[in-house]
Amino acid sequence: MTKHFVGDTAILTGRSLRHITRSMDTIITTAVTPIAMMLLFVYVFGGAISTGMDNYVNYLLPGILLITIASGTAYTSYRLFMDMKSGIFERFHSMPITRSSVLWAHVLTSLVANMTSLVVVVLAAVLMGFRSGAGVLTWLAVVGVLVLFTLALTWLAVIAGLSAKTVDGAGAFAYPLIFLPFISSAFVPTETMPRAVRAFAENQPATSIVNAIRDLFAQRPVGTDIWIALAWCVGILIVAYMWAMVTYRRRIS
């Protein structure tokens, strides 16, 4: 059965990508909120925030990218939930296809959709004055971290989509993830926070990921942040993937 895994996944990915191209609003909504936030922070609050960097857009962008991914994956669990609810999942599962390709199609679609939203957000940031002298390799490193982060959150979204009872419940997992960057180094340096908040902020995944991407963009040595960031992403990815598979097996039998 697994000999068709790649083919079946490609066919099913094509199907769910068509859902996105036919309602571009999911991409636009995913990109609009982070862009609005970026406008708010750069042109309203930004003047009052001292970051030690003269370009606040440069400071802000990495956190905004994480928010984009977190809100984008809410649609992943939404799409998955709708497939379960409509019965089309059962149709696929009763057909002679590789069953796991049904999940992988959603994961790949999530990746494509989120990367598209990220491109839109980065372009908006460029218009607002984001600049980076980073070379191709550095950009690839940034993309790599973002892909890993997207995959990690996508598998979390799969768990949410598979176990939700209502449409609203399916997307709700994303809210805390969207807010995670606020209590990190994404908007303001953590040094200004009270001790307890600062301890949380400095030891949660968003801070290390944001710092790593910010250093990459600024062509500064990334130090240990990149390794902590990768460890978080890979760790969340593995745990979420295994949990999602257990949930999936429980749901289909």
């Binding site: 059965m1 199907r15 068509r18 859902h19 036919r22 309602s23 409509s86 019965g87 089309i88 059962e90 149709r91 009763s94 057909m95 002679p96």
Partner: peptide, 21 residues
């Protein structure tokens, strides 16, 4: 199960069609 799936087709209680396509 795989051989069973090869020889059946299921039309479930609720039309399992893709609305967007």
């Amino acid at each position: 199960a795989a051989d069973v799936r090869q020889s059946i087709s299921l039309t479930g209680q609720f039309a399992a069609v893709d609305e967007v396509l």
